[in-house]
Design a protein around this nucleic acid. Sequence first.
DNA 1: TAGTGGTCTAGACCACTCC
DNA 2: GAGTGGTCTAGACCACTAG
Lengths: 241, 241
Amino acid sequence: MTGSPTFSPLYRQIKALLVQALDEGEWRPGMAIPSEAELAVRFSVSQGTVRKAIDELAADKMLVRRQGKGTFVSTHNDPREYFRFLRLVPNNGEVVPARSVPLECWRAKAGPEPARMLDLPHGAPLIVLRRVLQFNDRNVVGDEIYLPEEHFRGLDMDMLKAHEGSLYSLFEARFGVHMIRAQERVRAVLADREGAQLLGVDEGSPLLSVERVSYTYGDRPMEWRRGLYSTVDHAYLNELN
Amino acid sequence: MTGSPTFSPLYRQIKALLVQALDEGEWRPGMAIPSEAELAVRFSVSQGTVRKAIDELAADKMLVRRQGKGTFVSTHNDPREYFRFLRLVPNNGEVVPARSVPLECWRAKAGPEPARMLDLPHGAPLIVLRRVLQFNDRNVVGDEIYLPEEHFRGLDMDMLKAHEGSLYSLFEARFGVHMIRAQERVRAVLADREGAQLLGVDEGSPLLSVERVSYTYGDRPMEWRRGLYSTVDHAYLNELN
DNA sequence: TAGTGGTCTAGACCACTCC
DNA sequence: GAGTGGTCTAGACCACTAG
């Protein structure tokens, strides 16, 4: 019976303004945003209110606080953040860095599934790419990745081969597309001939199928991918609360 | 060169005291804790400091705030929370409640793996139970669950059959064991004869193997389980930030 | 109307980083 | 020492719940 509960506290409005500024690129990934005191003046609120807005953005991992230094726009373009969304860990605890190796890259029209996942019209232009992830020079993940061409114009094999780091670091550095969050659906499948060969397992071996949609500011989907994970020497790790 | 950074803010000390009180059962799951004002008096700090401690406990899901009513100890013993740790969702979005059906329950000595995962000495007494999870009366998950007998004395098939709800709600209601968080490792495996029959799939079908350790207050491991998930009609859903 | 959590402010001071 | 985020306080007021 009651109307919509339209009440929105000040700090959430400040938060929305900050997200808008981030989305518009007022501050680039890795750069510092103005100090809390400055922002308080800019928005005509107390520092405590700015602080609460930033608290939430830090919890969302859009910003990173560093005591004594400032507050920074989070970035994928830093070795420690390259594979922020990758949940695969080796069975023996040793930490080896992953390496992304591009295989193919072509243009295509969106079929029903990519169109739906990317919120695009059927037939919209896409860039599709295939790559593998390696640990210790061994292929462990094979991905097929679908991107709306509109936002990734110019992406090709040369660019992929020239780039050090993860795809998300490339997306950020070259196309200004910053992924904020993602959602994965994991299933068990059998390796077909191609997948088996790619990951160095027998045909018919069990693999994880991992489908992921990644979102940029404003919950806009910007990437859809399907991966095959070999879980012989690794596991998909998940924390539950 | 610098010594250990032992600085701990007041609100974290308050938080630790609150966790201790929760662990000792001063307030039971589902019940309200004292108001922020009362706690401020009790600990001789300002309400804002208590508030920040509770903020973190709410983020950890140990407490739940309800505006106008109070702050409550979180509980698994509520239909909406029965399967808080279950990440399985149906392929078609419809929400059907899960149902836990016990199969077997027996006593055993801890082998190397349960002992390691539960931080118990080799040979420590365990209770082991097998059960299935059903959606729409169809078996989708088969679990084998290992519990330290010390904390679950008296658990048997009769008790399992008599209980409505999830295992965690039973653990909480009957044994005062409240799971706070858990960690899962997911792999792809092939269904053996037994697993295939249990889940109604062909032998050799791909299944998810999900190993989980659950922790109570103080990060004390209290349960280890291994599950087989059929992902024919469901997917393991995960949010990444 | 009373009690609870939620917001907002202003100010003092602390911890950390860098020059 | 200057500048940043981090803590703590005290007080006023708002939103929500329940009797």
